[in-house]
Nucleic acid binder design. Structure first.
Lengths: 387, 387
DNA sequence: TAGTTAGTTAGAACAACTTACTAACTATTT
DNA sequence: AAATAGTTAGTAAGTTGTTCTAACTAACTA
């Protein structure tokens, strides 16, 4: 529970006014007052504050109404009052970018993860960020903070990567390390969670309250926004969709705790599709090739890929039955083949969930990670602007 | 977003002070001031308010510290400042009760659902409530409000039962109807959800932030508390665990949308256990008898019941993988046979979830529904006391 | 009687509110 | 074209309500 005092309430109302401006710009003081049911003097004072702090700009006058009267002064949100740095650390590449408060990317960089040894990754990241900052002629004061997405379980509160196998990080205090180089606040989060935050901020899940994001690639992971907030579970490991069991009989021959990854992953992830087809064909086949072979009518490929899709479909249906979301977003490596998935999955969902639900592919391309990381920052950071 | 003013903040702080008293009673004004970092005059004022409104009582003086000083005045929460009515409407019986603010039941009544036709149920409920109120010599002013648990999908905001097959209710505006008889506020909620609220308030899930409650009986339903709040989904139908698919191959021969109830329900609910064994034995067998037969070593019963338990286990494991809860509570008709479930289910959970989780039976007996409904009221009602 | 702690009183600070004002515009009348 | 009435935007002055600090009184121990 929270203790309130005058500062708390002023901040609260300032946020409310700013949100109103962001949602309805251009807007006048007078209209804000009507919309949020706050007295005109109070609105004027708060707007004055917001203008002085740079969040809001006056952009000339608007038109009078038909019945006459003084023309209103138009107020707009200033997305360039501050900039945010988004970082996406992945198993194959580390991408970083700088965006304004509307999520527009003004600078972007990436490098291959494997080229940098464990210790060098953050060093290289530091260089990339500095170069981008210079490029945009920004000072430390212009930067609000940084969000980082990491491919593993993350203790968000402490800023520690609990376990990220692909990075070989275990209980790695990444926030502490990164913070040493910068003066602004840094937030860290699992990359699937940053993805769903990005989708809710600017993507397919815009302004929805309950969405699920499923990433199918090397493994199968998921993140969810429930009641408008990221849900992390009691130990930061909610959404482990790869562990879903969709075939109880088959599951008896499989033990995730021993194999190291989940049942559904062992059937439906990109990696396992490749593996399974490879062993059937006795030659090395990737997931991408498996999809290609399937298109060509290869019987083995059809069997493997179709069963993968089917099981994924049941996994998603189960997810929907439990969560009743407004939208399911599919991302990750295989989201490129979304059209091939779609029908089968939608059919399973329609048949096996109490209340159906739309499934769409993820909105973003290369910049997904950066946008998500920025969304994370803006969601977590206590400020007058909040998404 | 919320607009703040001085009344809002005072109410907020009043809640905080009351919570502090409830959590640490008996406690002095001075200690509250230290605990919640609020000035002594402010605490005194708020406490004065709370005393006048009846929430708090002074109970004499405590002891001075070793270093001397004036003795503190002890403050305690007054659980009898108001009473709350809890109602549990079920397919077999309708139970109602009156509790104090600590959940102690002072009056209880129930009647068989089938004895009262559709229209008469609320009439009879009205009579029961009135008799209990008289019994306890309460006036309208002593009653804070009423919570109602219903066996079906409920639109909580509007107070409408969207669909409750066992009551033959469809879009039934129950809150409106009940409110006609009473002057206090009424809240309605699905019965599984009230159960989990009850467990979080006073039962196995006390003060936990993420818990799942699973009711296995006629069907299979579930409710969940996530981040300390009841999660209802985007259309009040989250937690439809009965629809989980735990055997993709078998599922192909089954269509929940046609059959009317979910896949897991068709295997693991009490009803279906009875049904399946009945058809195998060509005689009518109930779920209870099936369990009994299994204990006696009947082969058919063992097969049917064990597969039911197993599938339920996988369903729970899936639930846990997605939610990462602190606790899973099993309730409903079969929670009596919990010991027989426990081992199998725990083993499946240990093997098939990324991070294990404790499973316990539900705490309450007959009064479960009433306590849950009261918990619902106290959770939903905007007041200075909030659970 | 000195030292300590509990609780209250007095008044300052602050934020939102109401009321009444000025500023600036439209539309209509002269 | 000028004057005027009516309307809307925004500001100023003063009130209210809440928390805070500082200083007080009350009540206790040693």
């Amino acid at each position: 529970m929270q203790k309130g005092n005058s500062a708390y309430i002023k901040n609260m109302n300032k946020k409310l006014v700013l949100k109103c401006i962001r949602d309805h710009e251009p807007i006048s003081r007078s209209e804000i007052s009507k919309r949020i049911h706050m007295s005109k003097p109070s609105v004027s004072l708060l707007v004055e504050n917001l203008i002085q702090e740079g969040w809001v700009l006056e952009t000339g006058t608007g038109e009078s109404t038909i019945s006459g009267g003084r023309k209103p002064v138009q107020l707009v949100f200033n997305p360039k009052s501050f900039y945010v740095i988004g970082v996406d650390i992945g198993g194959t590449k580390v991408s970083s970018g700088i965006t304004c408060l509307n999520g527009h990317i003004y600078a972007y960089r990436e490098f291959a993860t494997k080229d940098y040894l464990e210790k060098d990754i953050l060093e290289r990241l530091y260089e990339d960020v500095n170069r981008m900052v210079e490029e945009l002629h920004l000072t430390d004061h212009d930067i609000m903070g940084m969000g980082i997405g990491v491919p593993g379980v993350t203790n968000v509160k402490e800023g520690i990567v609990v376990d990220a196998p692909s990075m070989k990080w275990r209980n790695f205090p990444i926030r502490e390390r990164v913070s040493q180089n910068f003066s602004f606040p840094v937030f860290v989060e699992n990359d699937v969670n940053t993805s769903v935050l990005g989708e809710q901020w600017l993507g397919a899940g815009k302004s929805l309250e309950n969405i699920i994001y499923i990433a199918v690639g090397t493994g199968i992971g998921s993140g969810m926004i429930l009641n408008g907030k990221l849900f992390r579970g009691s130990s930061y490991s909610a959404g482990e969709m790869g562990y879903l069991v969709t075939d109880a009989r088959k599951a008896k021959d499989y033990q995730p705790t021993i194999e190291g990854y989940g049942f559904l992953e062992s059937i439906a992830s990109g990696t396992s599709i490749g593996k399974r087809l490879s062993s059937l064909k006795s030659e090395h086949v990737t997931a991408k090739e498996a999809f290609e072979l399937r298109r060509q009518g290869d019987k083995d490929a059809i069997e493997i890929v179709d069963s993968a899709i089917e099981h994924l479909g049941f996994g998603i249906a189960n997810y929907i039955s439990l969560f009743d979301p407004e939208l399911v977003i599919i991302g990750g490596g295989v989201s490129g083949s979304f059209e091939e998935y779609e029908q089968t999955i939608s059919k399973i969902i329609d048949e096996f969930t109490p209340k159906s639900c739309q499934v769409v592919p993820s909105t973003f391309g290369r910049e997904a990670g950066v946008v998500g990381a920025v969304a994370l920052f803006l969601k977590e950071n206590e400020s007058v602007i909040q998404i």
